[in-house]
């Protein structure tokens, strides 16, 4: 099977692993959508193959495996933070004085791979008080709604969590 994807240039063992993972994921997705009835695989199988192929086509060159334990620990952390993010906005929007002191902050990313960086960028937008406004040469421009909040340490904490999710460690970084 992997031999047919000659246009994709990475080793075939990695490719096989990626292929199987994607096939499994899309099959689960199909079952979630269409139910467990075997008949729906008439359409399901070609669809899953197409989706898997498409996903492989756009996959990054370097695989970055997600550690399962890291995922289990990341989810509650993320849910908790985004909940407080929502509460923070609610407080500011509803209080008559509308307390805010917005400004821009830069943050130097030390995560090595693109998917990790993107995850970090997307999570920053859901953190209390911060949204990521630009990303250029390893540097995220963050818009914060309150400059008095400890933005740098929060983002750094998040970065360490993201790194743990992918099973790596990051260095200190600097503000």
């Amino acid at each position: 099977m992997p031999g047919k994807f000659s246009c994709i240039s990475f080793p075939s063992t990695i490719l096989l692993g990626r292929l199987l993972v994607r096939l499994l994921l899309f099959s689960v997705l199909w079952c979630v959508l269409a139910g467990l009835d075997w008949q729906n695989w008439i359409i399901g199988l070609p669809t899953i193959l197409a989706a898997t192929f498409c996903s492989l086509l756009f996959a990054p060159q370097q695989p970055c495996p997600v550690s399962f334990l890291g995922l289990l620990r990341f989810i509650p952390f993320f849910v908790n933070l985004s909940f407080w993010g929502g509460c923070d906005v609610m407080r500011r929007a509803l209080s008559p004085a509308m307390p805010m002191n917005p400004g821009l902050v830069r943050y130097q990313v030390s995560l090595p791979e693109v998917p990790q960086q993107v995850l970090l960028i997307n999570c920053i937008s859901l953190l209390p008080g911060t949204i990521s406004a630009d990303f250029h040469e390893q540097c995220i421009t963050i818009h914060t709604i309150d400059r008095d909040m400890p933005v740098w340490s929060t983002v750094h904490h998040l970065e360490r969590r993201v790194a743990a999710l992918f099973g790596i460690r990051v260095a200190g970084g600097r503000p």
């Binding site: 994607r22 899309f26 997705l29 199909w30 959508l33 359409i43 669809t47 498409c54």
Partner: peptide
């Protein structure tokens, strides 16, 4: 994009 392809297949089936 892969998700859209899957959903498109699902919509045709359903």
């Amino acid at each position: 994009v892969p998700l859209m392809i899957t959903v498109a297949g699902y919509l045709v089936w359903i």
